[in-house]
Amino acid sequence: MTLHQIKELLQAEVIYGNHCLDIEITFAGGSDLMSDVLAFGKPGILLLTGLTNLQSVRTADIIEAKAIIYVRGKKPDAQTIKFAREKNIPILSTPLMMYEACGLLYQAGLPGVGSLNQSTTSDE
C-alpha cells in the first residue's frame, strides 16, 4: 500500500512529505508511548501516534520508521516539522481516532508488527 493510498483512506493531510507519497508501506503500529514504540518498532514501520512533540519524530528516526500519521487531528509544532524535514520523514495528520485509523488500515490489508515477528521467527 502506498503512503498516498493511506492518506486517502484516512482522509489525512500531508504536513511534510508530499514528494514521498509513492513510498510503499508494508506494515504499521500505533502507540502514544515512545518507549513502547522503541520496544516493538521495526525498520520500515508506519507509525500512528497521538504524541506530536519532537520525541515522536526522534523516535521514528531512531527506529527507522517510514512515515508518521498523527491521529485525532493533531499537528506538531514548527520545530518538530523542521526536524521531520531534516530527517526526511513524511508526516501526516488524520482527523480519525487511533482505533479507527488503525482499524481502517488493518481492514485494508496492512498488517501489524506481530505478523512480521511471526514471519521472521519462521525464517530463523
Binding site: L33, M34, S35, D36, V37, L38, A39, L51, S56
Partner: peptide, 14 residues
Amino acid sequence: MGFGAGMGLPNIKK
C-alpha cells in the same frame, strides 16, 4: 513526553 512508562531500562537491557 511519551516516556516514563517503565520501559526504559528493560529496553536498554533487551
